[in-house]
């Protein structure tokens, strides 16, 4: 699913700027952490002090599509991009805002891989701001299926 979302957002970027996606992303690697989450005032990201099992300290090389997820997010912070679609001087993304949308994914926050999470948060942010509609994104995702 995320890959279809990825393609649809890549197309959106092509519309607002010059970025073109080049190759298909590889399969995501979702990792779920065990344990309950009893406190409703504790976000899914707020893991300090929880038992997390052994920590993999190896290098986590990002896949090409994951790097592009972050590149898209960064470019959307440039107000010049907003001007290209009639939203002059409006940064279409923000650090705190993307964190909020990622954390509001709830259980999906931990079920999704790092780059996937960023794309889902970005889609929610663009819908929330009225830049894209959910239907538009869904239609483009269907087209890539």
């Amino acid at each position: 699913m995320t890959h279809h979302l990825y393609f649809s957002l890549i197309e959106f970027m092509a519309q607002t700027g010059k970025d073109q996606q080049s190759k298909a992303p590889s399969a995501p690697n979702p990792s779920l952490l065990p344990g309950q989450w009893p406190d409703p005032y504790r976000g899914p990201h707020d893991m300090g002090g929880l038992a997390a099992g052994p920590v993999d300290t190896g290098d986590h090389a990002l896949e090409e599509w994951e790097k592009r997820c972050w590149a898209i997010n960064g470019l959307l912070r440039d107000p010049a991009r907003g001007a290209a679609i009639g939203r002059a001087n409006e940064a279409l993304s923000g650090l705190d805002e993307s964190r909020r949308h990622a954390e509001e994914l709830g259980d999906r926050y931990r079920a999704l891989a790092y780059g996937e999470r960023a794309m889902h948060a970005l889609a929610r942010m663009l819908i929330n701001r009225g830049v894209l509609t959910a239907d538009e994104i869904t239609a483009r995702m269907e087209a890539h299926r």
């Binding site: 005032y41 504790r42 976000g43 707020d46 300090g48 002090g49 964190r99 909020r100 954390e103």
Partner: peptide
């Protein structure tokens, strides 16, 4: 302070 925010609270839970 404990959960005092309706929004985007950034204080670590611990």
């Amino acid at each position: 302070r404990h959960a005092v925010s309706g929004g985007h609270l950034r204080t670590p839970h611990y």
